[in-house]
Amino acid sequence: MIKVLLADDQRLVRAGFRSILEDEDDLVVVGEVSDGEEAVAACRALQPDVVLMDIRMPGSDGLEAARQIAADSRLADVKVVMLTTFDVDDYVYGALRAGATGFLVKDTEPEELLQAVRVAARGDALISPSITRRLIAEFAGRVKAPAPSPRLAVLTGREREVMELVAAGLTNDEIAARLVLSPATAKTHVSRIMSKLDVRDRSQLVILAYESGMVSPGWLTD
């Protein structure tokens, strides 16, 4: 059973998400909160698998809450999916840097919401990969091109290939097909890369791929 926490200051939004999620046999909403401070406290008390977190909330916002959750070793297994709208795209890159697994637009279709929660729970891929790639590329493009990072020297040639494909938003199955590997081998490579680079999840690999100079915004295509 996947445990979900809803963090949004709009009661109607929370009610809508709860209705969609609790129609599914494998999903349960364990709590609702209306600001970031409450979200962090609820995560510590309830240990959800996934938090659907609004970026903009009164008081402590979703970005600050995501940072605190990512920094708390007791919450290492909690995945944060940020809720946004296209008029707040400037927050998306910051959300991923803050430790969010990915993001969804608030008017997403129910099927996409359900898929996103399940994908986030298993840590398999970024949420809405095509949108994520476009927005990360846009905001990474505002940052001065970095010099290649020596941090990546620990990776083998194959691991660098895999990390580049993770940065393109590919799932383990898609990486396996591209590199002619088994899905299990692709998953092992991704896990080993995250361990070597000491990153929390795949979205952090994407950020690192940009900020270390491994890939540039123009390198990605939808």
Rank of each mutant, 00 (worst) to 15 (best):
residue 153 A to Q: 15
residue 170 L to M: 11
residue 59 G to M: 08
residue 119 V to S: 07
residue 10 Q to M: 14
residue 183 P to T: 00
residue 87 D to N: 15
residue 217 P to C: 12
residue 156 T to C: 07
residue 49 D to N: 14
residue 28 V to D: 03
residue 79 K to A: 15
residue 71 A to W: 08
residue 87 D to F: 13
residue 66 A to P: 09
residue 143 V to E: 12
residue 191 S to R: 11
residue 46 L to A: 12
residue 128 S to K: 04
residue 212 S to G: 06
residue 93 Y to A: 10
residue 14 R to G: 05
residue 87 D to H: 15
residue 86 F to N: 13
residue 80 V to S: 10
residue 30 V to N: 09
residue 84 T to R: 12
residue 197 L to R: 06
residue 221 T to W: 12
residue 152 L to N: 08
residue 111 E to V: 13
residue 198 D to Q: 13
residue 14 R to D: 06
residue 175 I to Q: 01
residue 45 A to N: 13
residue 134 R to W: 03
residue 84 T to E: 11
residue 40 V to A: 07
residue 69 I to T: 11
residue 148 P to R: 10
residue 128 S to G: 00
residue 34 S to I: 14
residue 202 R to P: 01
residue 50 V to Q: 05
residue 67 R to F: 09
residue 85 T to I: 14
residue 207 I to R: 13
residue 19 S to P: 00
residue 189 H to A: 03
residue 100 A to I: 02
residue 169 G to V: 01
residue 152 L to C: 11
residue 159 E to K: 07
residue 194 M to Y: 03
residue 176 A to F: 00
residue 140 A to M: 03
residue 222 D to K: 14
residue 45 A to M: 12
residue 137 A to P: 01
residue 171 T to N: 02
residue 50 V to K: 05
residue 120 A to E: 09
residue 191 S to G: 07
residue 216 S to N: 12
residue 144 K to C: 01
residue 136 I to Y: 05
residue 90 D to E: 15
residue 92 V to N: 09
residue 204 Q to Y: 03
residue 193 I to T: 04
residue 130 S to L: 07
residue 33 V to Y: 09
residue 61 D to Y: 12
residue 72 D to F: 04
residue 170 L to E: 02
residue 172 N to Y: 01
residue 64 E to P: 03
residue 86 F to K: 15
residue 10 Q to S: 15
residue 126 L to H: 01
residue 215 V to G: 07
residue 144 K to H: 06
residue 102 G to Q: 06
residue 148 P to A: 11
residue 28 V to T: 14
residue 132 T to I: 02
residue 20 I to N: 03
residue 55 I to D: 10
residue 132 T to H: 04
residue 12 L to D: 08
residue 128 S to P: 02
residue 148 P to S: 10
residue 79 K to T: 08
residue 175 I to P: 00
residue 59 G to T: 05
residue 175 I to M: 02
residue 165 L to G: 02
residue 193 I to M: 03
residue 196 K to S: 07
